[in-house]
Design a protein around this nucleic acid. Structure first.
Length: 593
RNA sequence: GGUGGCAUAGCUCAGCUGGAUAGAGCACCUGCCUUCUAAGCAGGCGGUCCUAGGUUCGAAUCCUAGUGCCAUCACCA
């Protein structure tokens, strides 16, 4: 029973005994700093049931609580706000209960239905960029948050491995590549393939210009440029299973997968299962047939198949082209069904995809419902805002994309520069240093992206480097390192039982315990709202409180052993909570920095 | 044009289901390293919470209308 519930019961009792009225609920909020007290009861909402002057009502309830509840040490009423002072023993007790729990904040897994979280979902024709980075960080973090909230989670992606885009790279490589390979060039596979995507575009543009110069219309030229026709032909050959094309496709996609894996590892994210579009679109087609039989879909005279969603206030949506080939929607229907077949324990799915596809997912979920799948009501589109540059959208063909690998490297370099200036790590080996720079650089990047509400767009200015001070990853990592330093210096105290019973809590200590108390609730909240930002902001508040404590109260220099070991234990708990919170954000914490 | 999202300090962002005088960081200005790591702490400056109405004891938060930016409305993905 937490403080909130306990007090709610007592306030209800108070109102019943004083005013003979039944409250349905009591509204609490944290007491503002400028007033004495720890928790505040808002009296106004009671006025509907209890008539009278709010100040007087507050006063009488306060009086009652002080007399009947041991926890309540004192109270004051300001306007309609009843500020309650809680006895230190409550906080000390609470702290004693949690200070040994390593995975504090994390709920036991009890839900036997699992959730599948999809993220990343790249095309295989170019390397990952900053946009993917946001996607991957969000998806990974939300997965970890869901786990921490007590759910079973499978992390997955859908790899867009077929289609005209990869054929363009294949064709350009065939034509201009001189049998280059990642091995022969030393390039990452995804970078190599991406280069040929750019090569294709160059050649295509040149052909279009030539055609226009020879009198063709712009529109015709764009449609009939020979290299484009050839790429389209290659796609048809792929679909008909042409051996050479398929072999080339395997080879180049293989290069890309290896490159992606390196980037994922670099970022520090992983997946439990991979899905490939080339393997799921056929299942989608089957279910289009199924839906035709049951009347969920309808066929137009030209043979195209549609789903009529006008009853839902939406349009008609195509699910199969007139030539019988699959569209995006077909594939997504197939993929969803395949996943449930593979993992029957999955009861819902989260799709981490940019908000430009809000409409698509609205439709997809509706269609799956219409097809009668029980789990369709538990689908969630984790829709996030675009990452824009000052110049606007990132365009791979215009070379304005921020490459994921480059970005991570630059962040580590910045961390290195700052670290060298501060010069606290002289005794570290080169490997240890490098590892630390990466931890800090990645911490800065991940925190920078995750602290923002997912649905808001992010403006990223490559010229202005990401901060390492203030509300940032490194600030929080730094605080963790400080705490570890204290723990190293007080190892002899850790084992000792701090009785902590006769301690008068310092205001900063009480504040810290209150903040620690919130953590489990924050995890649950973040899981419900699919928002790592809530975790980031919570952690920042905790760390600010700790630093204030650290700089105003001497930990190792406490007046007596009892207080000293209490403060060390409190620091340790804060450190553990930082570590736990950051682990669900996918951010590592350093022992020193 | 229809639909959806966003709009809070010079900049980047918090603000939970409506609650007290709207909070942080960066930037700018003051102090604080012979004591646990100054990537820090303490303080100052800085706001028509896009606009106009409405609901309410009470609105940055809810409703309506408008403005601005973004996305989307394809036999593209």
């Amino acid at each position: 029973m937490n403080l909130h519930n306990t007090l709610e019961k007592h306030v209800k009792d108070a109102v019943k005994s004083l005013f003979q009225a039944e409250l349905k609920s009591v509204e609490f909020q944290a007491t503002r700093k400028e007033f004495a007290g720890d928790i505040t009861v808002v009296v106004f909402p009671m006025l509907r049931i209890v008539k009278g002057n709010p100040a007087v009502i507050g006063e009488r309830i306060g009086q009652y609580l002080q007399e009947h509840v041991d926890l309540v040490k004192g109270f004051n009423v300001v306007k309609g706000f009843l500020n309650i002072e809680i006895d230190d023993s409550y906080y000390i007790n609470f702290f004693k209960n949690i200070c040994q729990i390593e995975n504090y904040g994390f709920a036991e897994a009890k839900d036997n239905k699992a959730i599948m979280v999809e993220y990343s979902s790249p095309n295989t024709n170019k390397p990952l960029h900053l946009g993917h980075v946001r996607n991957v960080l969000l998806g990974y973090s939300v997965s970890e948050i869901l786990k921490a909230s007590g759910k079973n989670v499978y992390k997955t992606q859908i790899i867009n491995d077929r289609g005209i885009h990869i054929c363009k790279s294949m064709l350009a490589w065939q034509r201009f590549g001189n049998n280059e390979t990642p091995e022969s060039t030393g390039l990452k596979g995804d970078k190599l393939v991406g280069n040929y995507y750019v090569e294709f575009d160059k050649a295509y543009k040149k052909e279009v210009n030539d055609l226009v110069a020879n009198g063709a219309s712009e529109e015709d030229a764009k449609k009939n440029a020979p290299i484009l026709l050839e790429a389209q032909e290659m796609l048809r050959q792929w679909e008909s299973g042409d051996e050479n094309v398929v072999a080339l496709w395997h080879k180049m996609n293989g290069w890309v997968y290896k490159g992606f894996e390196a980037t994922y590892q670099n970022i520090g994210v992983d997946f439990d299962k991979y899905y490939y579009e080339s393997q799921t679109y056929l299942l989608g087609k089957e279910f289009v047939d199924e839906g035709l039989k049951t009347g969920v879909f309808e066929k137009d005279p030209d043979g195209s198949v549609w789903c009529d969603l006008t009853d839902e206030g939406l349009d008609r949506k195509i699910v199969l082209r007139s030539d019988g080939t699959a569209v995006y929607m077909t594939q997504d229907i197939g993929t969803a069904i395949q996943r449930i077949k593979d993992y029957p324990d999955v009861g819902g799915m989260v799709y981490t995809v940019g908000n430009e596809q809000d409409y698509h997912f609205k439709v997809l979920f509706l269609i799956l419902k219409k097809l009668g799948f029980e789990w369709a009501k538990n689908l969630y589109h984790l829709s996030y805002g675009m990452v824009d540059l000052p110049s606007g959208k990132m365009k791979s063909r215009e070379g304005t994309v921020v490459d994921a690998d480059d970005l991570i490297k630059e962040m580590a370099e910045t961390a290195e520069e700052i670290s060298k200036e501060l010069g606290k790590l002289e005794d570290y080996s080169e490997t240890e240093k490098k590892e630390l720079y990466k931890t800090i650089g990645l911490g800065a990047l991940k925190y920078y992206i995750l602290k923002v509400d997912p649905k808001k767009r992010i403006l990223f200015d490559p010229k202005e480097s990401i901060d390492f001070q203030g509300n940032t990853g490194p600030f929080i990592q730094y605080t963790y390192a400080r705490i570890q330093s204290i723990l190293r210096k007080s190892e002899h105290l850790i084992g000792e039982n701090s009785t902590a019973d006769n301690i008068d809590l310092h205001e900063k200590e009480r504040q810290l315990i209150k903040q620690l108390e919130l953590f489990p609730e924050v995890i649950q909240n973040a899981a419900e709202q699919h928002s790592p930002a809530l975790i980031a902001n919570y952690t920042y508040d905790l760390v600010k409180d700790f630093n204030s404590f650290y700089q105003n109260v001497s930990i190792l220099g406490a007046e007596n052993k009892n207080e000293q070991s209490f403060r060390v234990a409190l620091s340790k708990s804060v450190g553990q909570t930082i570590k736990n919170a950051f682990s669900v954000l996918g951010i590592d914490v350093p022992e020193r920095m």
